[in-house]
């Protein structure tokens, strides 16, 4: 056996058993990586591709920030608290728009999270074999259905069917401030037209659109719960739900939170379905069942065409705020998901 002290320089032979004299005369092959021609071309092309991607992204970010800054300089802090949107008169802010965006996203979460959680558990714990594969395919397919189709469905089918329910809720649960539907003077409204184009309808449609994203993240997290622990729970006499509650849900907690937030990020940025359903208003509307709401993306879709240079800059500022929020939500979500994947989050 040749024993080589790693600290010694490689060129010096050490006296040991098996050493054959004469071999040290041969020129030593360099062990340093020396890229061949094709390799260096490949490397530089790949690096260029990566740099281009980064370049596009930075261009978007920088361009948005630069163009937004001229509007932000004019409005200053009032951009965040002003409800009106009229850049022509220099009075504009995103308070009501941001409020609408977040309302719709939260309603979407109320619809989406139970559905996604239930479906993810159904796929990972109850469905077996071929059924499971089919369900996974269907979830993926749902993610690919264009949002304009969901919008169509929301406008032409869902709206008419939600109005009676909304009216019923506002009649019997009107004492909860959210569910109240009143006009400006406080008069309770009951006619159907007061319930059209509301944040709730938009929220339901957006909720259905983000379910697939959430389901697939959650399902993946649940399927990683270790079998040993599952079987241990069963061996201790637990029912299937007992096992799910004590093993699968704690292991999948990161997936649940992360998936929910990824869906939230998509819900915040959703445009066309919201634009088709809501009727835009520029006041903060706490009554989610009542006609009228707004969202940043719907505002951009509504106003970009008629905007002047400055108006465009104001829209850019609104878009930038939306982007920063979705970026923050997505980043938090993916870091939570990544941490739970590595197992650092599971203490069981």
């Amino acid at each position: 056996m040749t024993t080589t002290n790693p600290t010694e320089p490689l060129g010096q032979p050490t006296t040991s058993v098996g050493w054959t004299p004469g071999f040290d005369d041969a020129p030593r092959r360099s062990l340093l990586p020396r890229p061949s021609g094709s390799d260096s071309v490949f490397k530089s092309v790949a690096v260029t591709a990566g740099a281009t991607t980064v370049g596009i992204m930075l261009a978007v970010g920088l361009f948005l920030s630069l163009r937004a800054s001229s509007a932000l300089q004019v409005s200053g802090f009032s951009f965040l608290v002003e409800q009106q949107w009229s850049p022509e008169t220099q009075v504009f802010g995103i308070a009501s728009i941001l409020f609408g965006t977040i309302t719709i996203a939260l309603i979407a979460m109320c619809v989406a999270v139970p559905l996604a959680l239930g479906t993810a558990l159904l796929i990972s714990e109850i469905a077996q074999g071929q059924l499971r594969k089919t369900l996974i395919t269907l979830v993926d397919l749902m993610a690919a259905v264009p949002s304009v189709v969901f919008g169509l469905w929301g406008v032409f089918f869902l709206q008419a069917n939600v109005i009676p329910v909304a009216s019923w809720i506002s009649t019997y649960f009107g004492w909860i401030p959210f569910f109240q539907v009143t006009d400006a003077s406080g008069q309770v409204l009951t006619e159907a037209s007061a319930f059209t184009s509301s944040a709730v309808i938009a929220g339901i449609v957006v909720g259905l659109m983000v379910v697939p994203t959430q389901t697939s993240v959650m399902r993946e997290a649940f399927s990683q719960a270790p079998n040993g622990e599952r079987e241990a729970a069963f061996a201790l006499g637990s029912t299937r739900w007992g096992m799910v509650r004590s093993v699968v849900l704690p292991f999948g907690r990161g997936g649940i939170i992360g998936g929910t937030m990824l869906g939230l990020g998509r819900a915040l940025g959703e445009t066309i379905a919201v634009y088709m359903i809501i009727s835009p208003i520029f006041t903060i509307n706490w009554q989610v069942l009542k006609t009228g709401s707004n969202s940043v993306s719907a505002l951009i879709a509504l106003r970009y065409g008629e905007s002047s240079e400055f108006g465009l800059s104001a829209l850019m500022a609104a878009g930038l705020v939306l982007f920063l929020i979705t970026l923050m939500v997505n980043y938090t979500a993916s870091s939570i998901v990544a941490r739970s994947r590595s197992g650092a989050d599971s203490e069981a």
Binding site: T53, M57, V60, L64, G269, S297, I300, Y304, M316, G319
Partner: peptide
């Protein structure tokens, strides 16, 4: 990853 968070309308606006 950050780019996946870009709302589609903002990409259009850009």
């Amino acid at each position: 990853d950050a780019m996946t968070a870009l709302p589609s309308i903002v990409a259009g606006l850009f």
